[in-house]
Write a protein that binds this DNA or RNA. Structure first.
Lengths: 213, 213
DNA sequence: TGAATTAGATACGTAAATGTATCAGATACA
DNA sequence: TGTATCTGATACATTTACGTATCTAATTCA
């Protein structure tokens, strides 16, 4: 399911490039000011265009936002496929690898964009459906891989794998928020690394990172 | 630390009431449309006033938002004090009780408001400091109580208590987001209840409370 | 290379949101 | 009860954002 009902205009080379720059600009400005706070003018300025270019490529801001979210969702599923194409043996390593793919690039921008997307979805049913479908696909894929790895390595499974995957996702989101709010106290990723082994039936946490600093 | 540098104007009865209604209206509208999306006009209309009342009580929207966030932060700490004043014996019960206090009223409005607050803090250093300080106080208080309960009941502690508390908070936030996005698949609170025992050193989940009501 | 098409800039009109100044009714208090 | 103060409504000016219409330069393709 895709969100953009674009009128299928021909995508020439130049046009593609312009859209990409506008999307990048939008990602930056929106992560800084939020969806509502970012004006079309701001976005165009950031991308080095005037509003003329914008309205030549998108009907309005909503359409741009949808395109942006679509791109992010697709990229996530792509990265997931890459990881699961050659999954690590150990389950903890597997899940860590998946978590690493959840977020990419600057964690701050990632979190802000993702959170904006979540809020937008909560307020826009159509967006919610698409997001929910993607996330379900994500979880199913990961759960399958985890299940397979658990079976193969004979590790105990404390929690149903689907619950485990949900918990990892939730933990990752919440932990990132905390890390961004207090980077000095909680480095990005630290909480996840400490907690993950305990979610896995509390089996020996393979060399827990000692200091959190 | 408080966020509002209000010029200490005399708070008459009528004025207090008006401010309260404006704050309630703001909470509603902001949770629906976000901080930027909610216009001053919208908020006043919701509260049953015109903008005159608004500008008689607040310098601008920023000041209102700060007052709103201040109120929420104070309320959370208040509720926490109540719980910890008479803490349940069992650790899992204790943490569940704390989680229940984290959120109050409509989960959707709670989550939206809290998330808006987090985003706003990430973009406004002064807000971030206040929020971080409050959360630290929150965690310290909970960690102390949990530690005491663990010692008393002699339960194993798999995870350092401060890490545990952070994990619970993160899990709760992330799980709530998932539940709101797909209420049919994941009832509010379900994930937390399933996962919490496993965070606690995976000791026998002592009769996991089936329904919290 | 030249004609046809397309992309993006410019200019314009309109709507929405903000904040101020002012006024009338309500409230408080002597 | 009468007066002084306070509160919220109204009206206005300004700014900001949006979207369209038009035009020119760049691109494409015969």
């Amino acid at each position: 399911m895709t969100l953009t009902g674009a009128p299928a205009r021909r995508l020439t080379r130049r046009r593609t490039e312009t859209r990409a720059r506008l999307l990048t600009g939008a990602r930056e400005v929106i992560s800084e000011q939020g969806v509502h706070g970012a004006s079309v003018e701001d976005i165009c300025e950031r991308a080095g265009f005037t509003r003329g270019a914008f309205y030549s490529n998108f009907a309005d801001k909503d359409e741009l936002v949808l395109a942006l979210f679509d791109a992010d969702r697709a990229a996530l599923l792509d990265r997931l496929r890459t990881v699961l194409g050659d999954p690590p043996d150990d389950v903890v390593a597997l899940i860590s690898a998946v978590m690493d793919q959840l977020e990419v690039g600057d964690p701050r921008q990632w979190f802000l964009t993702r959170t904006e997307m979540t809020l937008h979805a909560l307020r826009t049913p159509a967006v919610a459906s698409a997001l929910v479908a993607d996330r379900a696909a994500f979880r199913d894929a990961v759960a399958g891989a985890v299940d397979e790895a658990l079976t193969r390595t004979g590790r105990s499974r404390g929690l149903p794998v689907d619950v485990l995957v949900r918990a990892v996702e939730a933990l990752h989101d919440g932990a990132t928020a905390q890390s961004l709010l207090e980077p000095a106290t909680l480095p990005v990723g630290a909480l996840q690394r400490q907690v993950l082994p305990h979610l896995m039936g509390n089996a020996a946490p393979a060399a827990p990172p000692k200091a959190r600093r």
